[in-house]
Design a protein around this nucleic acid. Sequence first.
DNA 1: CTGAAAGCGCTAACAC
DNA 2: GTGTTAGCGCTTTCAG
Lengths: 332, 332
Amino acid sequence: MAITIYDVAREANVSMATVSRVVNGNQNVKPTTRKKVLDCIERLGYRPNAVARGLASKKTTTIGVIVPDISKNFYSELSRGIADVATMYEYNIILSNSDERTAREVELIEDHLGKQVDGLIFMSDSISDEVRAEMATANVPIVLAGTLDVEEQLATVNIDFEEAAYVAVSKLIENGHQRIVFVSGPFTKDINRISKRNGYVRALEDVGLVVDESLIVEVENTYDNAYEEWQQIRELAGKPTAIFAGSDIIAVGLLNGIRDEGLSVPENYELICFEHSILARVVRPQLTSIVVPLYDLGAVSMRLLTKLMNGEEVEQQQVILPFRLEERNSVK
Amino acid sequence: MAITIYDVAREANVSMATVSRVVNGNQNVKPTTRKKVLDCIERLGYRPNAVARGLASKKTTTIGVIVPDISKNFYSELSRGIADVATMYEYNIILSNSDERTAREVELIEDHLGKQVDGLIFMSDSISDEVRAEMATANVPIVLAGTLDVEEQLATVNIDFEEAAYVAVSKLIENGHQRIVFVSGPFTKDINRISKRNGYVRALEDVGLVVDESLIVEVENTYDNAYEEWQQIRELAGKPTAIFAGSDIIAVGLLNGIRDEGLSVPENYELICFEHSILARVVRPQLTSIVVPLYDLGAVSMRLLTKLMNGEEVEQQQVILPFRLEERNSVK
DNA sequence: CTGAAAGCGCTAACAC
DNA sequence: GTGTTAGCGCTTTCAG
């Protein structure tokens, strides 16, 4: 049996209320008794039971984080940002992987709410109606991190993905390209189907170029798939001369596909991608890419959540962070 | 105010004990009353309070995971293995980053124990005395994942890192090399200072080669640092002809250092490394490397922890998983 | 098969 | 400043 607040109280000849005050840093305790209690706590090795505290106070100082797959760089970097700010505000994190399966997402939200988290940070490819309904039953604030809410009802933290795509594609257009392939990750992701795609289309239309749907190619977001798909992409009619890739990993797959047939980047194809993880820097040529501030996306999401949990007035629930284009050697 | 078990009981005209039985799948409930209760639960949208349950039952179905840095591939992959098995056994995970700082590690263990986790999985570069002392106060099982315990007292899951290094270096020796540089990550990590180093030394000594300490180089485990360090390494006396790198990321840094001065792998230097993450596959030449089964390390750790939490008899507390050498193109 | 009742360890009024 | 006393929402004997 572990030491309880009651044991400490008896040992120190005070009431449990006083021990509670000392443990919680309440100032209404005489210094001498505070010291006496602290000594007993030390001596007995008392460790406050957060579960009991949670039940009594109705706050667990724990938040839930639901992520598609923590082993993917995108989410692990973002999570680190969340974690650091959570630590700063003394919250713990319950972390779960959803694999972007709606049923699992609903289950996890339910599960986390059952654990009485004080708030929730959610990431996914898109927000299904079921998830939206489940979120509506929550009595704690929820923030979407790096995740679009097409209905713009929920609190979110993102970059302007459409604008980023626009900037990337415009760069290629400036360099004289007219036939630019957009190799996108799955269109099940709103960010791909809507944001990046719209940015691509808008960039072309703004300079009077015709959008050729055959130049929009959807691939899995994996190295191997992108590598293989290159065989199809190179055969596209009208000889594309530049590529806008939806992620580092896709870009690297294409890059190696291109090089393995004896062609090169940027001589034969110029290439710009999204994310700028370490992958973009280790390959040669290094990849010109949109830098997504993953860590900051997480950090700001958590900061927003703390405000919401404190009931603070938040002017803008949809936060947009800046991005930039990192110019390396995959474009001339 | 949220719906409680008491509300459901009143609505269903049964006692809260019966509702509890239904919720917990206890068989001693008549099917008709079970259905009646289930209906009320559904209708009221009752969601069991895991905190109250935890206090009453003294089990939280939550485990703690303390990791140096979740944004590093090594740990995020390992964590995914832990998470999947945790899900299988219906445990949640509280995840915290320690940055390998002892004081922080101690604080986190204390914190997690306060949250009443049912078990703990711990990862670090080495187990300091303070951490060992803190762990000794725990009344729940602890497993070290991918982390050495030089005193062999704690439950651990690893591969035989020394043997893996031995195999890697022996491969280079077989290929005719006599002057092999070992570019290691920080020696603050037991795995580097002890295991990999010993494997390197033993491989050389087994074939009668002299160990030249100047060929053992310690670098930070980052791409940039390895890239820069290449400038020193290339100047080493006696012209080394092969490299054994402690990780993918170090190997990639060296590889680019080598190539940027117009030399090539494997022609001028043969190279073998550890880990085999995606990095080893995207660079050219692809890297021959020891494959560390990160996901499995995590999965098996969690499985071991479940046994320990159930009080099952565990024959061997130190589990060693197999590894293999993946042969690619950085050696001839 | 079901109900009553005693806690689990702590917080939070409310007294004094 | 400090103590008393209700709960927080649930599990778990123990009766019946």
